[in-house]
Design a protein around this nucleic acid. Structure first.
Length: 954
DNA sequence: AATGGCCCGTT
DNA sequence: GACGTACGGGCCATTC
């Protein structure tokens, strides 16, 4: 069959999913506890439920249009005749599992899914045959199996979905993935397995020979036959072992070869599905006592619904009209060397050179100009691991117009240089999705990525800050109204395969990874076309170019640098907290008289409110009695005379605190990169709806700071090699200063300009007494009021926090707003404006939309009002800090110092300081922060420097 | 295995 | 009757 006829069929045929029924049933059975999954009369249902839900998951993700499940049949196969001990360890399949196999098959029948068994053969042979049939007939064929024997079926058309530790993260085993992991081709895999043996199947290999040696020999001699022919040449113990076990290995090889030409009496086109027998499904679910949720999920997943690539009928008049949302996959050219890349780029030079940088004043009416501009740009898309401290570059695609170059690792020096040249020369017309991630990816390949013209990830965030897409497919669905099921590209694959012949150098194959990167590049191009005019229309373009893109660069450097950890200090703290927690637990258990799990709210509820008979007050959202720290504290005071309850509560509170600290420290220990002893967090730039950053893996923005015990953890953050101290710089009361500036309230402005103790000064105004006579209670009450302002707090909330009567809180609030009238008006105006415009804006024009303000539900509306009040204040503070970061980073680099910013905690920057640079760096960073923006009040920055983060506090 | 609820750390 | 923003994340219980 020629390439062309193959391709024509790929276009009309679709995806075939072949499932190893036993493998999936085993997996489900051992993953789910029988105890929790059985009928009231004691029959186990865990394998049935697990099988159905796992299969539904895969079908949802891959969207096959043909599906078959293969099963073994009772009784021996030809393999047992050859190898009596074959699968000896497996024959002990639990009765509980065996009993469920017929139920699984009944379920499949009800769901309209074909299952196949062939007496005398294993399910594996049925799978081998089906995969071969699918591949020959031009289907994209997927084999779901946890059995590695299936790897021999892998080709450019056949991918094995192999479950990892978590079933959810199925590995897509392509020829490339097999070679990466085992260093042999898929067709050589059975040779490797024969040498190594298979413990799971009770098949011994050559003693002492594992994947490594097997692959080495196969590489040397080409195949098992080659190895056997040259067995005498192999030296050492391993060679000896090989020669002694040749017969065994040859037998293994015979047994592990899958039969691929059985007569199953069906053709692939018979294996469609989608017609669910709803009645039968419901009956079976009822019989097995599955819930309604499971029933609906089954029908939803297996009844044929939408095509993989469809348009929604919805349209939103806010959005620019989309005349053409279809994804056009570019024609790919696979590039292997610098010359080919240079030639390709030269050939498309007009596309690269034509468009200039994205103009800042893109507010002109027409979406036309912007659309043209965007389409004249080019997309850079890299794949790999963008984890800070462990980045790797696997593949790069460059898409210009309807053409794309794809370059796969390894990148030699010349190719790297050529790629560097392309991005350096043409970055002002470059589009990326996630500049920060691409900085990591390309840096792993030795390439520095200059600032792009456009970033679809950042643009999407600026346009819809409340929407967060985890994947590019989700972004496409949200912004383009295109549904692309993850991993399913068949609807666009036809075009791809047809093109590759003309444009590729020769015998290249477009594998799954290439298809994926091209699909993604096409999505990014389409996103840019849509988002560029939206960004302009919403006046967010300047934020992208002046704040978000530059700060991405700073964040990349911070993540790359990481924070040095004193591991000895951390383990010592962990042990200390662990000992405290254990002691508290012992005490609590003694008081309770049982070994209650102190980390289980449910168990605690029973002990406290049933066994001990304590009178609970507050409830959780779902109606149960809360065991929150504040509730426990209330009970602790209330039952001061009940020795047993009081003792338990005290110990429980101590355990809560110390155990939490232990857990935080352990998380940090686990996050330390063994290569450099540092923690490389990831700052999320597109998650927080207000414009703030967030920090994950690990979160370094919530390291304890409120009490001494927790604060100790900060002492483990230290300067690394070549550095001598840590500098901490933070804004004092930024949000209040923003309120003072925006409201124009003279009294509050004066309070900041006076330079006095701010809260004391404010208290004296509020209470109308001299500064000297302000009590510490008065000061702290006013302080809480001030901070509560920006959160839209209620008098009730204020009263609770300060443990005062609501009437007292009410009075405080009245006095406060009487003193600072314009602040009150300003806060009201924020909500009012949000109601009229539908959104709030920060000082720099960052928007957040609030549909909830018009909700008829009071709770929803109140929450929206608080958020609308808070967003411009918190968001302006976030903008200011981002500008400060850009300026501080720039100042440090221009000054040529080695000191560098390593952390941001919303209003604080932590800087790692090199020898002799302390004073200079302190002044550079503080200055950048103080002058990030000019307000009607000064922006105060307080600084501290020390041998660790704790000592740098001030 | 996957998910939701609870609780709690920061600003 | 609820009742302060914005987050990330660990652990438990549930699923049937």
């Amino acid at each position: 069959m020629t390439e062309a006829s193959h391709n024509a069929e790929v276009e009309t045929r679709g995806t075939l999913l072949v499932v190893d029924g036993h493998s999936l049933a085993f997996r489900a059975f051992f993953a789910l506890p029988v105890d929790n999954f059985s009928t009231s009369d004691g029959r186990a249902t865990n394998a049935v439920w697990g099988f159905a839900t796992m299969l539904a998951q895969v079908v949802d993700a891959e969207q096959p249009d043909h599906l078959a499940v293969a099963f073994d049949v009772k009784g021996g196969t030809f393999r047992n005749t050859m190898l009596p001990q074959y699968k000896g360890t497996r024959d002990a399949a639990p009765e509980d599992l065996l009993a469920q196999l017929p139920l699984i098959q009944r379920m499949l029948t009800a769901l309209g899914i074909t299952y196949i068994e062939k007496p005398g053969y294993e399910g594996d042979d049925v799978i081998g045959t089906l995969a071969t049939m699918g591949s020959d007939a031009g289907y994209r064929t997927l084999v779901l199996s946890g059995d590695r024997d299936a790897f021999q079926l892998i080709s450019d058309r056949v991918t094995v979905l192999y479950p990892g530790q978590h079933f959810k993260d199925l590995k897509h085993m392509t020829p490339e993935a097999v070679e990466e992991k085992y260093h042999v081709r898929p067709d050589q895999y059975p040779d490797l397995a024969a040498l190594r043996g298979e413990t799971a199947d009770n098949i011994p290999g050559v003693p002492g020979v594992g994947d490594g040696y097997a692959a080495k020999w196969i590489g040397q001699y080409g195949s098992l036959d080659g190895i056997i022919a040259h067995a005498d040449e192999i030296k050492g113990k391993k060679g000896e072992a090989l020669r002694e076990n040749i017969e065994q290995v040859q037998l293994n090889r015979k047994v592990n070869a899958l039969v691929r030409n059985l007569d199953l009496g069906v053709s692939v086109s018979d294996l469609t599905f989608g017609v669910v027998d709803v009645k039968a499904t419901e009956d079976l679910c009822k019989e097995l006592e599955f819930g309604a949720r499971t029933r609906t999920k089954m029908v939803k997943s297996f009844a044929r619904g939408e095509q993989p690539l469809t348009r929604h009928d919805t349209h939103d008049e806010h959005e620019p009209a989309q005349t053409d949302n279809a994804l056009h996959l570019p024609q790919p050219v696979l590039i292997h060397d610098a010359a080919a890349l240079e030639q390709w780029v030269a050939h498309h030079a007009d596309t690269f050179a034509e468009a200039g940088p994205l103009a800042n004043n893109c507010t002109q009416k027409g979406t036309q100009k912007s659309t043209q501009e965007a389409s004249a740009r080019w997309v850079l898309l890299a794949q790999g691991n963008a984890k800070p401290g462990a980045s790797a570059l696997h593949r790069v695609s460059i898409m210009a117009g309807d053409q794309a170059a794809v370059i796969a690792a390894p990148f030699d020096a010349a190719l790297t240089e050529a790629l560097q040249h392309v991005v350096t020369q043409y970055h002002t017309s470059m589009i990326v999705h996630g500049y920060k991630e691409h900085l990591h990816l390309l840096a792993a390949g030795g390439i520095t990525l200059p600032t792009p013209a456009f970033d679809t990830k950042l643009a999407g965030y600026l346009v819809h800050p409340d929407f967060h897409a985890d994947t590019l497919e989700q972004a496409a669905e949200h912004f383009l109204d295109i549904v692309i099921e993850a991993g399913s590209q068949e609807a666009v694959q036809g075009a791809l395969d047809l093109e590759v012949e003309d444009s590729s150098a020769g015998d290249e194959e477009t594998d799954e990874a290439t298809t994926r990167i091209l699909t993604h590049a096409a999505i990014v191009a389409a996103l840019a076309r849509t988002l560029s005019p939206m960004l302009a229309e919403r006046e967010q373009t300047k934020l992208l170019s002046s704040i978000e893109l530059p700060v991405s660069q700073v964040l990349y450097r911070m993540e790359d640098a990481g924070a040095q950890i004193d591991m000895a200090r951390l383990t010592a703290l962990r042990d200390e907290f662990a000992a405290d927690a254990r002691q508290a637990q012992e005490t609590a258990w003694d008081c309770a008289g049982s070994r209650v799990n102190l980390q289980s709210p449910k168990q605690l509820q029973k002990v406290l409110f049933e066994d001990m008979g304590l009178k609970a007050t507050k409830r959780t959202k779902s109606g149960s009695y809360t065991t929150s720290a504040s509730a426990l504290q209330d009970l602790y005071v209330k039952y001061v005379d009940d020795e047993r309850a009081n003792g338990f509560l005290g110990a429980l509170l101590r355990h809560r605190e110390t155990n939490k600290l232990k857990q935080i420290v352990q998380t940090l220990i686990d996050a330390v990169n063994p290569h450099d002893g540092r923690i490389h967090t990831t700052f999320e730039q597109t998650v927080a709806a207000t414009g703030r950053l967030s920090s994950v893996d690990p979160n370094l923005q919530n390291i304890p700071n409120r009490n001494d015990a927790g604060r100790e953890i900060r002492s483990a953050f230290v300067p690394g090699d070549g550095y001598v101290s840590l500098l901490s710089c933070d804004y004092s009361q930024v949000e209040l200063r923003i309120m003072a500036d925006r409201s124009g309230d003279e009294a509050l402005i004066e309070a900041f300009r006076s330079g006095a103790d701010f809260h004391r000064y404010v208290a004296s105004l509020v209470y109308g007494v001299p500064v000297e006579s302000i009590t510490s209670d008065q000061r702290s009450h006013v302080k809480a009021m001030s901070y509560g302002l920006a959160y839209g707090l209620s008098t009730y909330g204020l009263a609770q926090q300060l443990k005062i009567r609501p009437s007292h809180a009410e009075e405080l609030k009245k006095k406060y707003f009487a003193t600072f009238g314009k602040v009150h008006d300003y806060l009201e105006s924020l909500v009012a404006d949000a109601r009229t415009h539908g959104y709030t804006e920060t000082m720099f024009g960052r928007r957040r939309y609030f549909p909830g303000l018009h909700s008829t539900n009071r709770t929803v509306r109140d929450a929206a009002e608080r958020a609308a009040l808070n967003a411009p204040i918190q968001g302006s503070a976030a903008d200011i800090m981002k500008i400060a970061m850009i300026r501080a980073d720039e100042a440090l680099r221009t000054a040529g110092v080695a000191s560098r910013i390593i952390l941001q905690i919303h209003d604080e920057l932590v800087v790692e300081v090199a020898p002799g640079e302390a004073d200079q760096v302190r002044s550079l960073v503080a200055d950048a922060m103080e002058h990030a923006v000019t307000l009607s009040v000064p922006l105060d920055v307080s600084t501290g420097i020390g041998d660790d983060w704790q000592l740098a506090a001030h």
